[in-house]
């Protein structure tokens, strides 16, 4: 417990130092406008990454989240604009904003469960299975959208990505709720305990009577659904679903998990750590833009920060 706290305070300090440095270098950083902007931007990664955290805690990985984000946002947009046409009956099912969103979340959940099913049923490495899903879901997105953006998704949908509620951007509300729910699940429920146990020692967990496969199905399902939440946020912000949305988001998400102190070998880490990790990445991105650093250099810097985080993590483990 203390170790976890220490780790979290380490990354919190890193975040604080980062904010301090940027605010000294740029007077635009500490403006309300900019800070809300940062929080709005990271909300997508936060949602994806908390799902990813659960997967990584079981010693798994989900590389398909970026593609699932694109697919679910495309389907959501398609349902909102075109609905489902059942031609033989000359029937058209239209979707309300809520209906479209729920459909997207359901699809994300199902894709995730499918990932989990393949992984557990055939005892395959999660890396390979979700890598395949990365390609499949991206291809499906292209097929569904015919490679074109789907736009004009309606004012109420746009509100989700761009609106404000009680002085706080709606996406920030959503990510807060998502984080609260997943933190609760991971720390206060039997399911959450099982996730840690499976990642810590799968054999011991199995022998203790835990149904490993069901837990994994659920974990990958949640990760898929969180990707869909990200998909809704992204497309509502742009009021348009882009077929290439979410490309390489899985990497940002894994980076957030790792920077947040979750071990890729499972069993150790926390959702709150991941939130801090995602915030560090978001602030870093923002700071580099404010400082007019070229986008190419931004990538290099981001990679170096990930390396640094892992090195520090490793060092503190040895102590």
């Amino acid at each position: 417990m203390n170790k976890e706290l220490l780790k979290k305070s380490q990354s919190l300090i890193a975040l604080f130092v980062l904010c301090l440095a940027i605010s000294i270098l740029s007077d635009k950083f500490l403006t309300a406008n900019n800070l809300w902007n940062v929080l709005r931007q990271i909300s997508v990664n936060v949602c994806i990454s908390v799902g990813m955290t659960l997967v990584v805690l079981t010693a798994g990985i989900d590389l398909s989240v970026g593609s699932v984000l694109a697919f679910t946002s495309a389907v959501c947009a398609g349902l909102l604009t075109k609905g489902i046409a059942i031609e033989p009956f000359d029937l058209l099912i239209g979707f309300t904003t809520l209906g479209g969103i729920l459909a997207a979340l359901l699809i994300g959940l199902l894709i995730g469960i499918f990932n989990g099913w393949v992984i557990t049923r055939f005892s395959l490495p999660p890396f390979v299975v979700t890598l395949a899903m990365l390609t499949i879901a991206r291809g499906a997105t292209m097929l569904y959208t015919e490679g074109m953006p789907i736009s004009n998704l309606g004012a109420s949908f746009e509100f989700i990505g761009s609106g404000w509620l009680i002085g706080i951007p709606v996406p920030v509300w959503i990510s807060l709720v998502v984080v609260a729910i997943v933190v609760f699940i991971s720390k206060k429920t039997t399911f959450g305990r099982y996730i840690y146990a499976i990642g810590g020692n799968e054999k011991a967990a199995f022998l203790s009577g835990i149904n490993i496969n069901n837990i994994k199905l659920a974990v990958y399902g949640i990760a898929g659904m969180m990707a869909a939440v990200g998909g809704v946020l992204v497309s509502s912000r742009l009021n348009s679903a882009q077929p290439n949305a979410g490309t390489s988001y899985e990497l940002d998400s894994i980076a957030a998990v790792v920077i947040g102190g979750t071990s890729l070998s499972g069993g150790i880490g926390s959702v709150t750590g991941t939130v801090i990790g995602a915030t560090i990445i978001g602030v870093l991105n923002n700071g580099l833009v404010l400082l007019n650093v070229s986008p190419f250099w931004q990538q290099v810097v981001k990679g170096l920060v990930i390396l640094l985080a892992v090195i520090i993590d490793q060092k503190s483990k040895k102590k």
Binding site: R193, G200, N201, G267
Partner: peptide, 26 residues
């Protein structure tokens, strides 16, 4: 070590692992 315990978890969590109520709060 490989089959009995989740070494990275604490004593209390290891002892309760076999008897946690399913689908429930801790």
């Amino acid at each position: 070590k490989t089959e009995g315990l989740v070494l990275g978890m604490n004593v209390a969590s290891n002892i309760s692992l076999t008897t946690l109520p399913e689908n429930s709060l801790l």
